[in-house]
Each structure stands twice: as C-alpha cells, then as structure tokens.
C-alpha cells in the first residue's frame, strides 16, 4: 500500500466533501418505510454496495487509470457520458455532480498542484467518482485503494444517515459495516479489475428503487439530506 494515510484521509467521513449531508437514498427509503430497523438497513447497505457502490468504484478506478494517459481529456469525457448513461434518474445525476463539485472544491484547495481543468461536466460539475479517481491518483493511491474509498463511501454515508434518521444504536450499525467489510474490499477489487475494460463494458448495475427513491426525494419540500 503506497499511501495508507492518504487512503484513510480520503475515505474519512470527516473529509470536507459534503458526505455528511447525503444519505445515499436512505432518507427516501426510510420515508417509504422500506428501511425501518437494523435488519432492513443491513439489506439496504448490501444492495447499495452491489449496485451504486460497484458502479461508482469502477468509475473512480477508471478515472484513476485515465489520469496519466496522454488522451486523458477524451477518456474522462467518455467516462462522463458513460456514467450519465448508467444514471437514469436525473436527480441522481445531479447528486453525483453536486458531490463531485464538493469534492473538487476540497481537492483544489487541499492539493492546489493537482490538475482538474480537463474534468468534464462544466455545467453541473463533474461526476463525483471521476474527481475521486483523479484525487486518488494524485495522492498516490493505487487503483484498488481509490475504488475502495469510493465503495466504502457509498455504504458509510448511508449507514451514518441510518444512525441519524432512525436513532439506531451506532455500535450495532458499525457492526453491520464490519459484516460488510469483506464485500466492500471485494467490490473494490472487482471495480479495479473492471476498469481495464472498454468504457461501454464497465458495470452498469441498476437498482430501480434507487431511481424511484431519488426522484421522490427531489420533490419534497423539506429534506434533511441532500440525497
């Protein structure tokens, strides 16, 4: 492991990139009474890791792979449209770009020497996994570590939101995360391997309820979480 402290730093929920304000769809799932307790939260986290977690981790790994390439701008642009095509819900596209903007803001200030100018998505901001991929590469993380930061973030954000929304025992919720650790590591390895494939063949694992929950959430008058 080349840069273990930097991996911990990027994966830390306290890293100032807005993670605390995102529930990864959990707020809407709780409102729909689909997640009500520890058991349903566990199922939610497992499903999220296997869908959005894998896709996000793969795109972070693919952006990491593109970082040193001569045709990096074109590759990142292609990854941007490929990720759009994997994100059918406009609310989720907007969330990914909003989180990308937040991560970019943090990255630009913390690592002023890292070039980000060729990231696509000028209007709404770059997709979050692409920013994470470039940050991971610049911070000296390897591809699997970068994918791990992405996969880990998708489950910890939702788990932490579960503590806040459902008043669940934080020890029990962390026990769920311990149970998921192996799956999280495996997801990162799968993502790093998949990133070698052509962009059209990158994983596109769908979750119908993620799309539906995100669009319902976007219509609420009052939201505690941004997603």
């Amino acid at each position: 492991m080349a840069a273990p402290s930097l991996l911990l730093l990027l994966a830390d929920g306290r890293f100032p990139a807005g993670a605390h304000a995102h529930s990864g769809g959990l707020e809407a799932a709780v409102a729909a009474r689909r997640v009500t307790d520890l058991a349903t939260l566990a199922a939610f986290l497992r499903g999220r890791l296997a869908t959005a977690g894998l896709v996000g981790a793969t795109f972070a790994a693919a952006a990491h792979r593109a970082a040193p390439a001569a045709d990096r701008r074109a590759r990142l642009a292609r990854l941007d449209t490929e990720l759009d095509a994997r994100t059918a819900a406009p609310a989720l596209r907007a969330v990914s770009r909003r989180q990308g903007r937040a991560l970019l803001r943090a990255g630009r200030t913390i690592w002023p020497h890292i070039p980000f100018a060729d990231l696509p998505g000028a209007g709404g901001g770059p997709h979050q996994p692409l920013v994470l991929g470039l940050l991971g590469a610049a911070a000296g993380l390897d591809r699997t570590e970068t994918a791990l930061a992405a996969a880990y973030g998708t489950v910890t954000a939702a788990a932490s939101a579960g503590v806040r929304l459902l008043g669940l025992d934080p020890y029990h919720v962390h026990a769920l995360l311990v149970d998921l650790a192996g799956a999280c590591d495996a997801t990162a390895r799968d993502a790093a391997d998949a990133a070698d494939g052509p962009p059209e063949d990158l994983p596109a694992v769908a979750a119908p309820l993620a799309d539906i929950h995100a669009e319902v959430h976007a219509t609420w008058e009052v939201r505690l979480f941004a997603s």
Binding site: G25, A29, R34, V35, T40, A43, F44, L45, R46, G47, R48, L49, A50, T51, A183, V205, A206, A207, P208, L209, A210
Partner: peptide, 15 residues
C-alpha cells in the same frame, strides 16, 4: 439488473 442468489441485496430496500 441482476437478481438471484449471486446478486447481493437484490430483493432488499435498495434495489
């Protein structure tokens, strides 16, 4: 879309 024993969480509240 993946369902079945090889698709973790497919029947759960995230999918």
């Amino acid at each position: 879309l993946a369902v079945g024993p090889d698709a973790p969480g497919w029947a759960g509240p995230a999918v």
